[in-house]
Amino acid sequence: MSENVTVKRINGEILTDPSIKLNKRRTWTKNDWILLLMASLSIVFLAVFAYAPLYGLILAFKKDHETKNILSAIVYGSWGSYGGLEQFRTFLTDPEFGNIMANTLGLNILQLMINFPAPIVFAILMSELISDKFKKTVQTITFFPHFISWVIFGGLFLSLLDYDTGIVNTLFVKVGLIKEPVDILGGEDYFWPIIIITSLLKGLGWGSIIYVAAISGIPSELYEAAKIDGANRWHKIRYITVPSIAPTITLFFILSISGLLNNGIDHIWVFQNANNIGRSEVLDTFIYKYGLGMSNYAYATAVGLFKSVISVILLVSGNFVCKKLSGRGIY
């Protein structure tokens, strides 16, 4: 589509020289070669580091536990039953499959609804701060939690929310807000909110960087002009800021949709316990327990492959929907 535009423009400028027009169609210009060379850097890189190792996926169709040498298992291991689909079958017929998928998707959709827009709102609010000094300080400080691992960051919450000794329960009981301590960490209903809130606290500042970068790229003349036209703050956000960063938003939205099956395992791990397991067991923790934990690498590979296929489907459909709705997609 846009190719036409370019062609048209070049045509428009150099219509008087038909020879160049011919060149454009038949032979490649030097710049075409340069561009292709630049792009093929990625092809060379990916051929070595991404495509060459792909034969490892064969493992998903093999039996496991025949050898400790995974390479031998990939190459010579015997094929799984059910036409090599043994591992997939085991996974899909697992009694926990439904629950795990529900948890994974539920938690991720919730995150998509809350944790995806939050950094955007945060970045916009930050851009509206009147003091530059304060803005800088906020930007720096809100990155801090990103550098503390989940084990430590989560550990802080575990001790704050503890049923017996946590400050939250103790305080609320003392004030008289609640009579009995609330089992926040153990309650199944609390697990998703805990994950959402903690990832907001830890990731809001960090996640907003890209939007801050996008907003800072908006020319200030636009705002000045709007001001002269009598636009208020809301108008400026609605008609300048948001449309300007819309491509960025679409891009990251599609990328997040394709990641719907991924949960940060470290994060879940910290808050998962015997009491909330019904809501906290997600695909990633499941693969870890039954695949890697049992040295069942064929199984882990198969579930991983399943995840990949779903992710690609989600990407394609997410992109399709976005294109229909906003006219933008990532390809």
């Binding site: 550990g155 575990l158 001790s159 017996d164 000794t165 960490l185 153990g186 316990n273 015997a274 009491n275």
Partner: peptide, 16 residues
């Protein structure tokens, strides 16, 4: 047996 026992990790048990 406290309810908290079921949600405590190593540090939590150790702290108790």
């Amino acid at each position: 047996i406290s309810k908290g026992n079921f949600t405590q990790n190593f540090d939590g048990i150790g702290g108790t």
